[in-house]
Amino acid sequence: MNFFLAVIKQTLRNLVQTWKSQLLTLMTIALSVLIFAFFYLLYTNALHTARQLDDDLRLIVYLDEEPSPAMQEEYRNKIQKFDRVERIDFISRHDAFNRFAEQLDEDREILADMPKDFLPPSIEVYPFRSLVTLTKIKRFSDYLLTLPGVLKVQYGREWVERFYSFIKLLRIVVILSGTLLILTTTFMVANTIRLTLLGRKDELELLRLVGASTNYIRVPFFLEGALQGMTGSACGMIALFLLFNWIKLRFAVSSILAMFEFTFFPLPVIAIIILVSTLLCAIGSFSSTRKFLQL
């Protein structure tokens, strides 16, 4: 029998002997992963949605006078100086009138007696679509107001701020649930291993007396921890996938949720979550055996 076979045999024996506490730990890990992954999924989807909504995000800078081509270039430079933007469009009084008329559609007759230059000229600034843009948009707006000839700057301020607050809140929840995941997995596994070690004190003493190597004693517990982490997190991810599909089927068709496209984690993200949980549990187990066995 080689080392690996002996260690695997010992690990399986450990698992069978303490299956009740193993099951409890497994469920706790699965639940922690489920909670964390749920909020993280919500967060990633919120970011995705933000990107979709950002398509309409633009800052409209109203000017008091029609800018000359030289002035347009100066505006362009000053805007680019603050931040790189995706696009800058100059809308003349005439263009603004035409747009307005288009929007009124059948009611455009009401504009018949209006002069064609009654609307102010404007610059439409399309920022790059990212969360960073959202956080900077107020400062961007304040900056644009300082430019010469600017009357007013408009953007979906209330919406942007609310959405940004929501994302900020989600980010905090993700961090908290992530911390919860780290604490639970590490401490629960460390605790289960400690209980197992206490329960098998006599056997461990005997193993030492008959000359078992440090690795022969320690590796099965390490494997046990890693196995708990892997199985527990995999169960958590499966539960989340089922929950995700249920929510999608149950709510997405008939509610506001239908407006947005929700996606599950891509495979690499799933693999990373499982890998990190496995690693955390292995560390928990390792520290526990190290302390208890003083190896």
């Binding site: 029998m1 080392f3 002996a6 008959v210 190597s213 022969y216």
Partner: peptide, 13 residues
Amino acid sequence: IAMEVSYTRPSVM
């Protein structure tokens, strides 16, 4: 147990 820690072959054990 005593033989397992010395990695003795199962058939020999």
